[in-house]
Amino acid sequence: MSGVDLVAAGSVPQPVIAQVTAIEASLFVFVVLTAIVTALARDVLAAVIVFGAYSLGMAALYTFYRAPDVAMTEAAISAGVTTILLLLTLAKTTRIDHEVAFESVNLPAAGAAGLLFVGLLLTTAEIPAVGDPDAPAWSNVDVTQWYIAETYAETGVENAVMAVLAAFRGFDTFGEAVVVFAAGIAVLVVLRREVFA
């Protein structure tokens, strides 16, 4: 099976373009608005709440771009865990009442952020299109085909992605698990608890 065949077999049905752009455009407006409000809101609790709304919009956007796994992570981590952790931090510290609702914009900082945005935007032209047979992953057909053909014989894991995560780069995953474990311990220390309950 050649790379082009694999791409064709795995391609998703292309949605109707006109409606797609309408949803995309309104989601972009929503996400950008929430991001700006989160950055500029003077009241921390308001910023936390609007940040929750931001992650709702991001998850909808990820889902729309057919990345449901990323959307689930965004939903669970950003909307759920992060909001709770930020609220816990607020509860442990103080919240000052402000008279003005929004911070004034720091122009040099906004300019630097704008430059970074433009710089990142310029790199997007180099990203291969979805299903492009000339993309780096497909131009090295020997490597990708080796993983597809030999994964089960080498590791005994049926899912190739899972095999890469748990076997081929097992130590890397182990390091990630250590980081997550350390973060869990740190949360328990901050909460002054001994178990998650």
Partner: peptide, 14 residues
């Protein structure tokens, strides 16, 4: 999604 932008106004304005 357009309605969501309207709801955002309430979340921001309080």
């Amino acid at each position: 999604v357009v309605l969501a932008v309207g709801m955002l106004y309430r979340a921001v304005k309080g």
